[in-house]
C-alpha cells in the first residue's frame, strides 16, 4: 500500500461526497435538459499510467472522447474524460435543446461533455468549499488509436492516478456516457488533505 492510497475512512468520505454531488448534479441536469439523468454508483480506484489506456479501451469501443481539465484551490486538479458509445450521438441536439442544423455532432458532444463535467464538479467543489475552473473541452478523436495516444501522452506526467468513473444514463434518449475523472498523484495528496479535514470535523 503506497502513501497515495486512500484509507477506508478517506475512501468512504470521498464516495459520500461524490454520491451527494451526483444527486445534485443529476437534479440540475434534469431541470436543464428536461429529462431525467441517472448517475450510476461511481467506482473509485487507483490506476497506474501504463494500465489506464488498456483498462479504458477494453471496456468499450468509444467513438468519441472529450477531455476537459479542471483545477481548483488547494491543488485539486485533474482531467475529465467523457467517453461516448457509437449509437449515443443520434439525438444529442434534441437532448441539448438545439435544432440539429444549428450545430455539428462534434459540437453537440463537446457541449454536453462540458455541461456534464462542470455541473458535477461544481457541486463536488461546493461540498469541499472549493471552486473549479476549467479548460476548454477538446474532442480528442473519433478513433480508438488517437485516444490511446492521448492517454499515452497524459501518462508522461504521472505514474499513478485516482480514477473515478461515473456512468450517466438518459433513459428517455436511451443514451449513456461515462465520465472518468483522473486525478494525478500530485493532486491525490491534496485530495487526501481535504478529506482528512472533513473527517476531522466529524
Amino acid at each position: 500500500m503506497s502513501a497515495l492510497n486512500l484509507n477506508e475512512d478517506q475512501q468512504d468520505c470521498l464516495q459520500e461526497l461524490i454520491n451527494v454531488a451526483m444527486g445534485q448534479a443529476s437534479d440540475q441536469l434534469a431541470r436543464y435538459l428536461d429529462t431525467f439523468v441517472h448517475l450510476k454508483v461511481p467506482s473509485i480506484e487507483q490506476v497506474d499510467a501504463k494500465s489506464l489506456s488498456n483498462s479504458l479501451n477494453d471496456e468499450q469501443m468509444a467513438v468519441a472522447v472529450v477531455s476537459q481539465g479542471f483545477f481548483g484551490y488547494e491543488g485539486i486538479r485533474g482531467e475529465a474524460l467523457l467517453i461516448y458509445q457509437p449509437r449515443d450521438s443520434d439525438r444529442l441536439a434534441d437532448l441539448l435543446g438545439y435544432e440539429p442544423e444549428e450545430l455539428s455532432v462534434e459540437e453537440q458532444i463537446i457541449d454536453l461533455s462540458s455541461i456534464l463535467t462542470t455541473t458535477f464538479l461544481n457541486v463536488f467543489a461546493g461540498q469541499i468549499d472549493n471552486q473549479m475552473s476549467y479548460s476548454a473541452p477538446r474532442l480528442l478523436s473519433s478513433t480508438k488509436s488517437l485516444v490511446s495516444e492521448h492517454l499515452h501522452q497524459l501518462s508522461f506526467n504521472w505514474d499513478l492516478a485516482l480514477k473515478i468513473k461515473i456512468t450517466y444514463q438518459v433513459t428517455d434518449y436511451s443514451f449513456n456516457c461515462d465520465m472518468i475523472l483522473l486525478i494525478p498523484e500530485s493532486a491525490i495528496i491534496n485530495i487526501k488533505t481535504v478529506l482528512n479535514r472533513i473527517l476531522d470535523e466529524f
Binding site: 431541470r31 436543464y32 462540458s114 455541461i115 462542470t118 475552473s133 473541452p137
Partner: peptide
C-alpha cells in the same frame, strides 16, 4: 441555469 462556464472553440465553430 447550471451556473457554470461554457465554451465555444474555433475547431467546431
Amino acid at each position: 441555469q447550471l451556473g457554470t462556464q461554457s465554451f465555444c472553440s474555433w475547431e467546431q465553430r
